[in-house]
Design a protein around this nucleic acid. Structure first.
Lengths: 219, 219
DNA sequence: TAGTTATAACTGACCAGTTAGTCAGTAGAT
DNA sequence: ATCTACTGACTAACTGGTCAGTTATAACTA
């Protein structure tokens, strides 16, 4: 059945191994959780033996750490530059950031790490702390500044910037949470774009109909 | 040292045992996760031996099931009656529901079960499905109806009811998630009431300042 | 009231299954 | 011929679930 039944039993490819182990581990951790994934499963999915995994990682936990490390590095460098020191009406920026985040979250790999962290945080609190330091503590202050500027320059009502971050991002997070955890999606599927559009309309201009739109009131 | 060093080794209290086991299990599952909690830990915290636990629950998993069952029953009966068949301006209802939910979430026991489910759902999908059936599938349609009515009667802009639920509840969920998972709370503490007030202001009337409030624009 | 019996409630040592991590030996590369 | 990437059987530790035996308590007897 194999294309090469008489091929060598293994190859020596020390350079590529760690990445392959991390890929395999991520897939399995997401699918079955950290505890239920055996090191041997990771090994065989990565195409080597259990013993070989321990040549590259000192423990099972170290694999998880490597996973989070690898995910954290690009984020810090990524979506921050074009947010900082922005002045002027923040609404277009918020719109495009939300759309970008929403699009990112639709890609399979992106949610995997936070999902994993939420599950395993209790067993590895240091890991969650690291994610917080490297990702959240960098992104949140920038958002806060953006909103503060919006208030200072009169584009926004005088709202609390810290708390408003939750009003901006919360709906997208809840949407993903409902879909991922309980399989609750809108009638037409995930509909991430429509969610963002619907949310932005409410976010900027509110749920309440303007007076001119009120056709009739409750009897 | 004991007040009663010669007291009996145990008491026969068959009626009270299951509840005590569930209480002990909930505390430990929340603290250390399902897998890392040994049945013996549950037993000793509940004040009996491991063997006795198996007189009341056929397996460790059955304890978890019992936990979710116990949490689910009151919810279905609780906050639904006063929401159904409501007509008229939904805004006061939404305000009080959000405030009620926010207050509930501050009580320690309430978040425990959903937190547990998010963590253990992968290992026990049937349990998450049950929670969805018994809680979410009952609450969400009522909220959806409430918003639909608001739109039909002209109180709200013509927004999508299903998606708008996320805009209403998402910020509270994210607030709890940030606090519980990453320990990120506003400067003054959890500030749940201020969060709800800030959010309701945005939710009903939007983030954008009305024209009259715009003192100056970006240069 | 005190002793006897019956039985339900409970204990804790034990078993069986699982798996992270080790290491002596093997096989591919150069 | 040498070096090193790699294998896989093994061990040591852990824990869910069992069960033969023990103890508390209620019911019965005298």
């Amino acid at each position: 059945m194999q294309t090469e039944p008489r091929g060598p039993k293994f190859r020596r490819r020390a350079e590529a191994r760690p990445e392959e182990v991390l890929d395999a581990a991520l897939a399995l951790f997401v699918e079955k959780g950290f505890a239920s994934t055996r090191v041997e499963d990771i090994a065989s999915r990565a195409g080597l033996s259990k013993g070989a995994v321990y040549l590259y990682f000192p423990s099972k936990e170290a694999i998880l750490e490597g996973l989070v490390q690898r995910a954290v590095v690009p984020i810090a460098a990524n979506a921050l530059g074009f947010l900082s020191n922005y002045t002027g009406d923040p609404r277009p920026v918020i719109s495009s950031v939300l759309k970008m985040v929403a699009h990112q979250l639709t890609q399979p790999g992106t949610v995997a790490i936070p999902k994993l962290l939420i599950r395993e945080m209790i067993h590895f609190p240091e890991l969650a702390a690291m994610y917080r330091r490297e990702v959240l503590d960098r992104v949140l202050p920038v958002l806060e500044q953006l909103i503060s500027n919006g208030v200072a320059e009169g584009h926004f009502r005088p709202i609390d910037p810290q708390l408003t971050i939750r009003s901006i991002v919360g709906p997208i997070v809840l949407h993903m949470l409902m879909a991922e955890v309980f399989g609750i999606v809108p009638d037409e599927g995930l509909a991430m774009e429509r969610l963002v559009d619907n949310h932005l309309a409410i976010l900027f201009d509110g749920l309440s109909a303007p007076q001119s739109d009120r056709r009739f009131m409750a009897t």
